[in-house]
Amino acid sequence: MTNVYMPRKAEIVSIIPQTDIDYTFRLKSDILPQHGQFLQVSIPKIGEAPISISDYTDEYIELTIRKVGTVTDAIHELKPGDFLFIRGPYGHGFPVEDFKNKNVVIAAGGTGLAPVKSIINRYNRNPKEIKNLNILVGFKSPKDILFEDEIKKWKEKFDVLLTVDNGDETWTGNTGLITKFIPDLKIENPDDTIVIVVGPPMMMKFTCLEFLKRGIPEKNIWVSFERKMSCSIGKCGHCKINETYVCLEGPVFNYTKSKQLLD
């Protein structure tokens, strides 16, 4: 009988610190996930945690992990050459095939940038796949900014709006919540525009509402949910919202569905 809970060993090739508490771990792996899928990542005797895949190639995958609990604390102690244990990928990712030749807006708050980073890099490699890409990223403060180098690269090709909730004395960029910038965003044809929103629950809620105000049809908006998960395969019940298992039907949802996920 296949043991569906059995993870496999994956070697850490490199570790790229993003902030004091967010590190990107590059693991040797040939998994080719969908954008937005996640893995169950574990250290034996410490525990397992669901982590979204922040990027991948056919040789490695990247996990950007914030130090927020027992498991992630322990992962942060690891060094290149150490092993993590992974199972997955799980869940449904973003249906990028449907986004082809459209205008795409990606709005990400904080660690919410991780699950959509691979999509941005996909378009960065192959900008012709879509008509246009608009990126809005918000962080709490300048020291919380993730993927700074990559954001710089994206700016060369796309409209990137980087904002922080609260700046400091050195910060000369935008300040304020993402929602502040949506009313002035250039959206030429709302029906032909796909919006991806990922971030903390409140940020997602209000960001979606702003895009709806701009005339984006509900069916064009995509979000990704974070929930407690133990199994990731529809058994443990933790991630269930009403009739929906986030691990099975999500974590990526179309807005027409996500708005019904009452909790």
């Binding site: 809970y5 574990s42 250290i43 034996p44 005797k45 410490i46 525990g47 397992e48 133990s230 199994c231 058994k235 443990c236 019940g237 933790h238």
Partner: peptide, 24 residues
Amino acid sequence: SCFSMQDIFYKDNPKCGERRRVWA
């Protein structure tokens, strides 16, 4: 049928341990 996963190491032998699931 809900459950949570728990990883533990044995106090008397921290190199060994187990992963278990417990009703939630």
